[in-house]
Nucleic acid binder design. Structure first.
Length: 484
RNA sequence: GGCGGCAUAGCCAAGUGGUAAGGCGACGGUCUGCAAAACCGUUAUACACCGGUUCGAAUCCGGUUGCCGCCUCCA
């Protein structure tokens, strides 16, 4: 079986074949570090993290590059507002980036270049474009002449003439054409600046990705990804810059992820509904967020709503409850030898379905639709073996390991079950007003009442706690509680 | 206005020519003093609407309606 990916450039799903035998070069547009990460960033990060994981699972040797844009208008503006340097601001936000995203289980890319560390390559690339006659300088600014690149619009399927007539941007008089875009900007006083053939200046918006991707991955590489919104103009411009400079195809497969909407509305600063990763992680274990974001196909829009997160929480929690039970039983017998026991037929089929789904343009909802039932089957198998006179632990162990392996494709089910459940429980407890001591006192009262067979009192206490979102569970070893 | 996408059960979401995956919820059962949890089972004669192609369509074609995205910084 082989991987098929939807290529935004051709508009079709295509079998994926690397340019150089089994080595894959992948570049994904990262974040501009002027603010904290929101759930939209999380989606893109998780989608491409999943692609990275899957490519490696398929046996490819992947060079994954994800940049940090650490110099641009927004950063300069924000730094000025706060009275700090752009360097300080970006360092601070890069630290925040890891703080927000490390818990999500995002694997570190092979390279994480920053624009300011590649100014030399950027200048060389702009220089090349100027020498080839597709760029021109005006007062220390350098612009790309879009009319010199006949294929402009091939990614976004836009028509240059229509773009010109529909241009909504205030036309900069210095540009020869409204569509031309800045490769290099002359610095104003107080702005970060580097020496260049055109005087002191800084890179334009799009050039850094062309320069860094080509210097780390070569003039033509396999996969370039990012959010759908980057198709135009960012990626269109990257193609124009790169291909005009090298005369070679820039990227073979363009992969774009869809947006996250918030309660059916577009997430935007103006609507004030930007949802940070932190806000979600305050309430849910990161794996719940991962499960939610992978529950829709990466190219479709996904709608955020508390009920969807809650639904995924229940699913993931159930998986871990099963795993905890199974792991506990397996460990009773000490070390179980190997995991090479043959998988039951149903499990093997589901396992193949997971892979087939992932091969089909990373269809994570379909893949998860096979993984969840597999855990269900694991539980059934465990119960059957446990009840049998001569339990076959190796068989259960093999299935359990399969769940771990396949979960790893999504960054799910990799935690120690007890740790997951404790973490989620800890977050839940922050949402209620009663202290654990107060709850325990009520439970003790109720236990006494139950012993006296005064069920009326016992039920009243249970109802009272339930009204505050606390659910009691009477088990063989006493009563425990959880937050609804 | 241009380009593109979407419309599947109470909700989320796969399926893209062969007769509707999976998850959440709900309901029934086992268990329980009763619950909860867990487990077992049930839960779309049907895929926005109207035509057409076909032996056969949720799936292809045409049209209608509704929603959304991009065209401007944005994951």
């Amino acid at each position: 079986m082989s991987l098929t990916l939807y290529n935004s450039l051709t508009g079709k799903k295509e079998p994926f074949t690397p340019l150089h035998d089994n080595r894959v070069g992948m570049y994904v547009c990262g974040v501009t570090v002027y603010d904290r990460c929101h759930i939209g960033h999380a989606r893109s990060l998780i989608v491409f993290d999943t692609l990275f994981r899957y490519l490696r699972h398929k046996g490819y040797e992947v060079t994954y590059v994800r940049n940090f844009t650490d110099v641009d208008d927004k950063i300069i503006k924000r730094a000025n507002e706060r009275g700090i340097s752009t360097k300080e601001l970006s360092e601070e936000n890069i630290a925040c980036f890891y703080e927000d995203t490390d818990p999500l289980g995002i694997l570190r890319p092979t390279h994480e270049p920053r624009a300011t560390e590649h100014i030399g390559e950027i200048i060389r690339l702009v220089k090349t474009l100027e020498e080839k006659g597709v760029a021109y300088e005006v007062d220390g600014d350098v612009y790309y002449a879009v009319s010199k690149f006949p294929e402009y619009g091939k990614l976004s399927k836009k028509n240059i003439e229509e773009l010109k007539s529909g241009a909504r941007i205030a036309v900069d008089e210095r540009k020869k054409d409204p569509l031309d875009f800045a490769l290099w900007k002359a610095s104003k006083p107080g702005e970060p600046a580097w020496d260049s053939p055109w005087g002191k200046g800084r890179p334009g918006w799009h050039i850094e990705c062309s320069a860094m991707s080509m210097s780390l991955l070569g003039e033509t590489f396999d996969i370039h990804g990012g959010g759908k919104d980057l198709i135009f103009p960012h990626h269109e411009n990257e193609i124009a810059q790169s291909e005009a400079a090298t005369g070679k195809p820039f990227v073979r497969t363009w992969v774009h992820n869809g947006f996250v909407n918030i309660r059916s509305e577009k997430m935007s600063k103006s609507l004030g509904n930007v949802l940070s990763i932190q806000e979600i992680l305050d309430r849910y274990h990161p794996e719940v967020l991962r499960a939610f974001l992978l529950s829709a196909h990466y190219r479709s829009p996904i709608n955020f709503d508390d009920t969807y997160l809650e639904s995924n929480r229940v699913s993931v929690e159930r998986v871990y409850k099963t795993l905890q039970e199974v792991d506990g039983w397996l460990s009773e017998a000490g070390e179980v030898a190997g995991s090479d026991a043959e998988l039951p037929g149903e499990i093997a089929e589901l396992s193949e379905e997971v892979e087939a789904a992932m091969d089909d343009d990373l269809n994570t909802p379909r893949a998860l639709g096979a993984l969840y039932p597999m855990i269900h089957k694991l539980h059934q198998l465990y119960q059957a073996e446990k009840a049998s006179g001569s339990p076959n632990r190796a068989r259960v162990h093999a299935v359990r390991e399969k769940v771990r392996e396949l979960g790893g494709l999504f960054g799910l089910f990799q935690s120690e079950p007890g740790a997951f459940l404790e973490t989620q429980k800890g977050l839940d407890k922050k949402r209620i007003s009663l202290s654990p001591e107060e709850i325990q006192a009520k439970i003790d009262l109720r236990t006494a009442a139950r012993k006296a067979r005064d069920f009326k009192t016992a039920d009243a206490i249970r109802d009272e706690l339930a009204s505050q979102g606390i659910i009691l569970e009477d088990g063989p070893e006493g009563t425990t509680w959880r937050v609804k």
